[in-house]
């Protein structure tokens, strides 16, 4: 057996190992959630409210909470990221763009607990005083903070795809006398929408999966929210808060339902990216 073969097998087994861990985790969660499926409770849990005093352990409010925080954080984060990456890769002078990008790269390394602290002591009081009612621990505060967390993911993806637009196209615009704005709107944006989409889906995945920010500043109430100023609990915070419950209780088993749901959400988003990028292959 030559050296190349050994290397190939080594890498193959590494790939199989890491892939199987992912599958095993899903299997593990499904097995532990099996009692829920057997009793036909799984879909009931997904659609019911959380009323532990009446022995109803539904995670519907947490699903709504996760969705609203994640989507709103995209609403805040997307324009911001698009602007920063456009500035960094197209509009600003090269050196400023470089500095900007380095700063954003550094932002990816900040632990989320830091954002959580800033949220608790800075953002929450502001939201509370600005909007009157409520504690300030709410969807709005959490998603505003979360948008800062997910922005670097989007910015780095966006600027990379902006830079991958073929040089000839850009030169052509310059030759035709197009302004930088025209260049960005009519050539760069259409040419890099795939990268933009990938960045958005990844950022969404990060927003859905983040635990600490929501746990610290979303308030964790179990009621169904009726406005962005309501306190909510996300699926991830719910897992963190319930993990201490009795192992054998139904309450504890709901966290596997949360886990499966989070897992499926991530898988679906990855699949969406795959499908989109393969369909558009070969287009300008």
């Amino acid at each position: 057996m030559n050296r190349e073969n050994v290397a190939r097998r080594l890498f193959l087994s590494a790939a199989i190992l890491s892939a199987s861990v992912t599958v095993l985790i899903l299997g593990f969660m499904v097995v532990l959630a099996l009692p829920l499926f057997k009793q036909g409770l799984f879909f009931e849990i997904l659609s019911q409210p959380w009323l532990p005093d009446s022995s109803i352990f539904g995670i519907f409010p947490m699903i709504v909470g996760t969705a609203s925080i994640a989507l709103l954080s995209l609403v805040f984060g997307f324009p911001l990221s698009l602007g920063v990456s456009a500035l960094a890769s197209t509009f600003a002078p090269t050196r400023i763009g470089f500095l900007l990008k380095k700063t954003v790269q550094m932002m990816t390394g900040i632990p989320t607990v830091i954002y959580g602290f800033v949220g608790v002591f800075l953002l929450v009081p502001i939201v509370r005083e600005m909007f009157g009612g409520g504690s300030g621990m709410c969807i709005l505060a959490a998603s505003a903070m979360l948008s800062v967390l997910i922005a670097p993911t989007m910015i780095l993806f966006f600027s990379e795809s902006f830079e991958n637009v073929p040089k000839q196209h850009i030169d052509a615009v310059d030759a035709l006398g197009g302004t930088p704005v025209q260049k960005f709107l009519y050539v760069i944006l259409p040419g890099s929408w795939r990268g933009i989409l990938t960045g958005v889906v990844l950022a969404l995945g990060r927003a859905v999966g983040d635990t600490l920010i929501a746990l610290m500043i979303a308030g964790n109430a179990v009621a169904l929210p009726s406005s962005v100023l309501d306190s909510v609990r996300t699926l991830t915070s719910h897992i963190a808060l319930i993990i201490a419950a009795d192992f054998d209780s139904l309450e504890f088993k709901t966290i596997f339902a949360c886990g499966i749901l989070l897992y499926l959400l991530t898988t679906i988003s990855v699949l969406v990216i795959r499908v989109l990028s393969s369909k558009t292959r070969g287009m300008p």
Partner: peptide, 20 residues
């Protein structure tokens, strides 16, 4: 009430009330 905010420790409760 289901609208109650949840905090995870005595310390966190103190800082939540001290801030609100």
């Amino acid at each position: 009430t289901a609208r109650a905010n949840f905090v995870v420790s005595n310390g966190a409760m103190k800082s939540a009330i001290g801030n609100d």
